[in-house]
Amino acid sequence: MLSVKGLKATVEGKEILRGLDLEVGHGEIHAIMGPNGSGKSTFAHVLSGREGYEVTGGSALFEGEELLDLEPEERARKGLFLAFQYPVELPGVNNTYFLKSALNAIRTSRGEPELDAVSFMRLMREKLKVLHLDDSLLKRPVNFGFSGGEKKRNEIFQMALLEPKLAILDETDSGLDIDALRIVADGVNALRSPERSMIVVTHYQRLLDYIEPDYVHVLAKGRIIRSGGKELALELEEKGYGWIAGEEAA
């Protein structure tokens, strides 16, 4: 589904990604772990097309098509979804209107008809329930005045609604208490399917107790330096990042 080869990117002239390789197959969940500053979030942002990053080398093929040439909205319409580490507040932008615009943009690009108001509301109610979110959220401006937990749940709620092929969860666990984490993880797990892949970017192993990955990769200094099964996460938790970084240096 996703094939990243030799990806290099700079931020303000500073090289952050230095030849990153990653293969994600259909239905797989990949965890990317790494210390602060290793390039985890940069990787997520570069894939989703955020401004401010310059890709200086490599490629990222998504279903055989070069992602890096596409505008952010085109990537989203092809089935890419980024759950933000810091969801952006949009004062004055009604959540329902936002969700409807997003869903219809994606449906239209797939050649599907726009949803009528009744079917749309039904779909939203159904997805809200999964994330234990209240109806009132729909009437509020997007993320505006939401608690940290509500923002993260709203991200997963959007993911449930938009049904991407590949979801990137950027530190979705950060700032969540254990109850909120469980709700978010349940929401994510409900979306697991043989057609949907996920990249879970996290600093801590904790999230992976709830969202069980098929593969774990360790990112350091802009490259994946180690890959393994889910047991790699446990090993990391036990020995710390210094363990691998040390091994690298040796």
């Binding site: 989703s48 097309g49 955020r50 401004e51 505008e71 952010p72 909205e73 990537r75 989203a76 319409r77 979804f81 980024l82 933000f84 969801p87 952006v88 949009l90 004055g92 932008v93 209107y97 936002f98 615009s101 997003a102 943009a105 994606i106 690009s109 959007q158 938009l162």
Partner: peptide, 18 residues
């Protein structure tokens, strides 16, 4: 703007919404 575009919304529509 990026947040809206990352959800599939075109840049002109995103600007309109904002």
């Amino acid at each position: 703007l990026f947040y809206l575009r990352s959800r599939g919304i075109s840049a002109p529509l995103a600007r309109r919404m904002l």
